[in-house]
């Protein structure tokens, strides 16, 4: 996944990744990444049909685009 992200970023497009495998993602050095703590694969954006939670996570991820750069890092946040 980070390989795809890095390739898109190299074409001059800003990217942000939502990951539930932060160690694996950090090793691959993502330009920007958010890990919603405690979520697992298949539940990257939390609970089914929880629109408010899913939009919160999407906006938090997009918000990383405007925050000071932390290239290669995975930002971990709680959503409970």
């Amino acid at each position: 996944m980070v390989t795809v992200q890095r390739a898109i970023e190299m074409l001059g497009i800003s990217t942000v990744l939502i990951t539930v495998e932060p160690e694996e993602s950090a090793q691959a050095r993502p330009p920007r990444a958010l890990c919603p703590r405690g979520f697992i694969a298949g539940h990257s954006l939390g609970r089914p049909n929880d629109e408010a939670l899913q939009k919160w996570i999407v906006m938090d991820a997009l918000g990383l685009l405007r925050e000071p750069a932390r290239p290669g890092e995975v930002v971990r946040r709680d959503y409970t």
Binding site: M1, V4, Q5, I8, M10, I13, S14, V16, I18
Partner: peptide
């Protein structure tokens, strides 16, 4: 094959779509 073919093709296709930002998700 992913690294050498699929990912570059996909990245170019994304670029042609002219996004201002890309949000990526895994499984």
């Amino acid at each position: 094959e992913l690294r050498e073919t699929t990912v570059p093709q996909l990245a170019r296709a994304v670029s042609v779509a002219r996004p201002d930002a890309v949000l990526l998700t895994g499984g």
